[in-house]
Computed example of a mutant assay.
Amino acid sequence: MVEAFVLIQTEVGRAEIVAKQLAGLPGVLSSEAVTGPYDVIVRAGAPTLAELTSAVVPTVQQVAGITRTLTCPIAGAMV
């Protein structure tokens, strides 16, 4: 399985709502509202990198209230 952290910025005041919505999506392993430069951090996974980038990440990005994402594949999970 290939995994990645998706760092997410949201509209003001929407972090908790977005984190809860993301938690129920296919491929989302965990979703947490955090403080700092990002508002939510998601751990996502898929059988292949292609599926992660073509199916899981775009689904995450479509959640209302998200303004920006940064996907960081986990190096150890790619081998």
Results as ranks from 00 to 15, higher is better:
residue 3 E to H: 14
residue 3 E to P: 02
residue 4 A to L: 06
residue 4 A to F: 03
residue 4 A to C: 04
residue 6 V to C: 13
residue 7 L to H: 06
residue 8 I to T: 11
residue 9 Q to P: 02
residue 9 Q to G: 09
residue 9 Q to W: 00
residue 10 T to Y: 05
residue 11 E to M: 08
residue 12 V to C: 10
residue 13 G to N: 02
residue 13 G to I: 00
residue 13 G to F: 03
residue 14 R to W: 09
residue 15 A to L: 01
residue 16 E to K: 01
residue 16 E to G: 09
residue 16 E to R: 06
residue 19 A to R: 01
residue 19 A to S: 14
residue 22 L to D: 02
residue 23 A to L: 08
residue 25 L to C: 00
residue 27 G to A: 03
residue 29 L to S: 12
residue 30 S to W: 04
residue 31 S to Y: 00
residue 31 S to N: 12
residue 32 E to P: 03
residue 32 E to V: 01
residue 33 A to C: 10
residue 33 A to G: 09
residue 33 A to T: 07
residue 34 V to G: 05
residue 34 V to R: 06
residue 37 P to F: 05
residue 38 Y to W: 13
residue 39 D to P: 05
residue 40 V to Q: 00
residue 41 I to T: 10
residue 42 V to K: 05
residue 42 V to I: 04
residue 45 G to C: 01
residue 46 A to K: 02
residue 47 P to L: 08
residue 50 A to R: 11
residue 52 L to D: 09
residue 53 T to M: 14
residue 53 T to G: 12
residue 54 S to G: 06
residue 57 V to C: 15
residue 57 V to G: 15
residue 58 P to E: 12
residue 59 T to A: 15
residue 59 T to C: 09
residue 60 V to C: 13
residue 60 V to M: 13
residue 62 Q to C: 11
residue 65 G to S: 05
residue 65 G to A: 00
residue 65 G to H: 01
residue 66 I to W: 09
residue 68 R to A: 13
residue 70 L to I: 01
residue 70 L to N: 03
residue 70 L to T: 10
residue 74 I to L: 15
residue 74 I to D: 14
residue 75 A to E: 13
residue 77 A to H: 04
residue 78 M to L: 15
residue 79 V to I: 04
